Simulated assay, not measured.
Amino acid sequence: MRSSIAISELFTSLQGEGLDLGAPSFFIRISGCSIGCKYCDTKYSWKKGKLWDIDSLVKEVLKSKIPEVIVTGGEPVEEKNLSILIKRLSDLETVRKITLETCGHIFRDDLKYPKLKIVLSPKPPTMGVDFPTETLEKFLTTYEQVYIKFAAYDQKDLEVIKEFAYKNKNLIRAPIVIQPLEVPFEDYSYTSKRIFELVISDRKFINDFEIKIIPQIHKLIGLK
């Protein structure tokens, strides 16, 4: 019996956020999420999507002729067949890099593949969910190719980020990305400017860590 995964959508775009900003990428958006973030920008992906067998997903990746694949959600770590998909993608000669985007609430240790990079995107208090400190620490301890991309809307969010960063300074190996959080009641460019001002005002923080403030560029230029 073939392994299958419920998919919300497949599409081609640029990587609009984080350290790989601007890279042409093929996106696999896995459906389903139990976290329930208040201002999630892909709530449509919470519903169960179309079932795809993994062979067919691999064919779509090959057909795209794009060397970078992003597996996102929803919350892809909740998908039981995720490890099978990652392995199949990692085995493809034409795939250069696989990026897995997760909020870090659910830990898995079965994703150790050579081309995989894990991006942890924990949601701040503004999103109305608990901050997943323990599972983030497990990811950082278990995987080498991993970095954190913190979303932030206000000073309260930044204080949670700083507390985690200082507590786990020995585990953080890559630059810390701070991503302004898009909310429906404020213009995103305004939020981005305000987060920059809040971060840059804390000279100790930006000297103690390598910080990169990176807005979601696809939101600013109108891409998916």
Results as ranks from 00 to 15, higher is better:
148 I>T: 00
125 P>G: 08
163 E>N: 11
110 D>N: 10
181 L>Y: 12
99 T>S: 14
157 D>P: 10
188 Y>Q: 11
156 K>L: 01
185 F>G: 01
160 V>T: 14
138 K>I: 11
91 D>V: 00
210 E>W: 05
185 F>V: 08
150 F>I: 04
170 N>L: 05
110 D>C: 01
205 F>T: 06
183 V>G: 03
197 E>P: 08
123 K>W: 07
198 L>A: 07
184 P>G: 12
132 P>M: 10
169 K>L: 05
132 P>Q: 12
162 K>F: 02
213 I>K: 03
158 L>K: 08
159 E>L: 14
159 E>D: 12
207 N>K: 11
200 I>C: 08
174 A>E: 15
91 D>K: 07
99 T>N: 06
136 L>E: 02
113 Y>A: 06
213 I>R: 04
99 T>M: 13
153 Y>F: 15
147 Y>D: 06
142 T>Y: 11
157 D>Y: 10
146 V>K: 04
175 P>Y: 05
162 K>H: 02
180 P>R: 07
211 I>A: 03
157 D>N: 10
161 I>G: 02
134 E>V: 03
141 T>Y: 07
191 T>A: 08
197 E>G: 05
150 F>N: 07
117 K>F: 13
96 R>A: 09
190 Y>A: 12
109 D>K: 14
125 P>A: 10
192 S>K: 06
151 A>M: 14
118 I>D: 13
109 D>T: 02
187 D>I: 00
107 F>P: 08
205 F>D: 07
140 L>S: 11
132 P>C: 10
178 I>C: 00
179 Q>E: 14
187 D>N: 12
141 T>Q: 09
142 T>D: 03
212 K>A: 03
136 L>Y: 01
103 C>F: 03
128 G>Q: 04
120 L>D: 08
149 K>D: 14
208 D>S: 06
151 A>Y: 10
116 L>S: 01
122 P>G: 00
195 I>Q: 13
98 I>D: 01
161 I>P: 06
127 M>A: 12
183 V>N: 04
108 R>F: 12
170 N>K: 14
180 P>Y: 03
181 L>C: 12
190 Y>P: 04
136 L>M: 12
179 Q>A: 04
112 K>H: 01
109 D>V: 01
106 I>F: 13
205 F>E: 06
214 I>M: 02
125 P>R: 09
137 E>D: 12
177 V>S: 09
176 I>Y: 05
209 F>G: 06
216 Q>R: 15
150 F>Y: 13
192 S>Y: 04
208 D>A: 00
172 I>D: 08
191 T>N: 09
96 R>G: 10
102 T>C: 05
130 D>F: 07
92 L>M: 09
179 Q>T: 08
131 F>H: 09
219 K>M: 05
149 K>I: 11
204 K>G: 00
96 R>M: 08
117 K>V: 15
195 I>T: 11
160 V>A: 08
196 F>T: 09
108 R>M: 13
159 E>Q: 13
158 L>M: 04
217 I>C: 06
91 D>W: 00
178 I>N: 02
205 F>C: 06
184 P>S: 10
209 F>C: 05
219 K>T: 03
197 E>A: 11
120 L>F: 04
94 T>N: 08
92 L>S: 06
117 K>N: 11
102 T>R: 05
163 E>V: 00
135 T>I: 15
107 F>Q: 09
156 K>G: 00
159 E>R: 14
156 K>Q: 00
131 F>E: 09
160 V>I: 13
184 P>F: 12
